[in-house]
Write a protein that binds this DNA or RNA. Structure first.
Ligand SMILES: [Fe+2]
Ligand SMILES: [Fe+2]
Ligand SMILES: [Fe+2]
Ligand SMILES: [Fe+2]
Lengths: 214, 214
DNA sequence: GGCAAAGTTTCGGGTTGCCTAAATAATCTG
DNA sequence: CAGATTATTTAGGCAACCCGAAACTTTGCC
């Protein structure tokens, strides 16, 4: 089967990522927005990916990965998250600085290097943001999680994951001492209590980026 | 000034590398061969690089770097060699395995990551093959060296550098225990004595890859 | 049901970087 | 120094990705 190009890898990864924490498949419009390109460009690439058997697509319908497509996607995600973990653990990066670097390197490193890094790190299961790292065979654990925005007042849980899409949110949370593993209680729709200690107000943006145990 | 593409970086790097251990500037034909592409492709890219002020070129003449071009080239060489050093020192690669990986990564890592790696390694001055690593400002030390093929019988010296172009040669030398820092004596045009110890026959290919102190 | 808005695709273009084949310039050789 | 060889450039094409504008579906709403 034909090797995937960096551009194709980004399409597959983004299609995959969209269903990682919610069920609905992605549409071309949303995909175009996420990738920062024109919808017409998506149509074109979608045709190629469908022809290559990596995605299923009926005209005007949503985009879903085939088994082969999902395998390719998780391979990219594995690269991305291992690179992020490595940058934080070995090279002094903070969790808000690693995403962009990983975005590039995920398309460049060889399988050999990837596994060397994984071994070097002791085969971590999650990246600095709490995202699970798929295994080399593509298998991924599934975790039940509740978006902070959807958590009722009084809900108590552990922070599982923070989306790394917005570095500013990551810096904000780091300053508050909140990250994966933190035990928190939702005081009200805009306030969080950390470890039965200090209360922190939070914005809607933050609420849409933080995931807690159910 | 316009950022360089991976392809352009490879052109500049290869033009630079050609004059690193010998004076004659490279010709389009040789450059095409080194890059593994057609001569006409070189003509095309050369026009762009000349227009960008990175190389000097008169039709049917040789290719030489401008100051700006040399700066860009040494930046790529710095990346390449730091990556090679990092792979060997931190990730268990042997010196014959690193070149191809570095060939890709040199175009992908950010300045930030490059300097983090350099710091992590304690700012090494040479890569695993003995090639000097240019400083961040582009400055490079110059070393007088003699190609083993040009060394007279009886010549004694230290191995300064082994070309990493042919991994087989690197494996051969590693097996013989010969590398940068080894003290050797040229017995005759096909035999080398290591540290006044064991004698090793060597081929013309090896003789063209090993550089000794003068 | 009918129509406007939103989403998707088609179409014509543009850039980068590569190719082969053919033309042209430079160099070598007898 | 002329013909042959080699190097270089020109010309025409191709694949990967991207774009905007226009056409065409689908959806949402009165
Ligand atoms: Fe990320
Ligand atoms: Fe992440
Ligand atoms: Fe190398
Ligand atoms: Fe090297």
């Amino acid at each position: 089967m034909k090797p995937t190009t960096p551009a194709a890898e980004d399409y597959l990864k983004t299609i995959y990522a969209h269903t990682e924490w919610q069920p609905e498949p992605i549409t071309p419009k949303v995909l175009a927005t996420r990738l920062g390109i024109a919808p017409s460009s998506v149509t074109e690439m979608v045709k190629k990916l469908a022809a290559a058997g990596l995605i299923a697509h009926v005209p005007y319908g949503p985009l879903t990965l085939t088994d082969e497509g999902r395998l390719r996607a998780t391979a990219v995600v594995r690269r991305h998250r291992l690179i992020e973990t490595w940058l934080v653990r070995e090279l002094g990066y903070t969790w808000d600085e690693v995403h962009d670097e990983a975005e590039v390197l995920e398309h460049s490193i060889s399988d050999r290097l990837l596994e060397a890094i994984s071994t070097h790190l002791g085969h971590p299961r999650a990246d600095p943001h709490g995202d699970l790292i798929p295994a080399a065979d593509g298998s991924t654990a599934r975790v039940r999680a509740v978006l902070l925005a959807d958590a009722p007042a009084g809900h108590s849980g552990t922070v599982l994951r923070v989306s790394d899409r917005d570095p500013a949110i990551l810096r904000l949370l780091a300053d508050a001492g909140i990250g994966p593993g933190s035990n928190v209680t939702v005081v009200d729709s805009a306030t969080l209590r950390l470890d039965a200690g200090q209360a922190h107000p939070f914005s809607a943006d933050v609420a849409a980026a933080v995931w807690l145990t159910g």
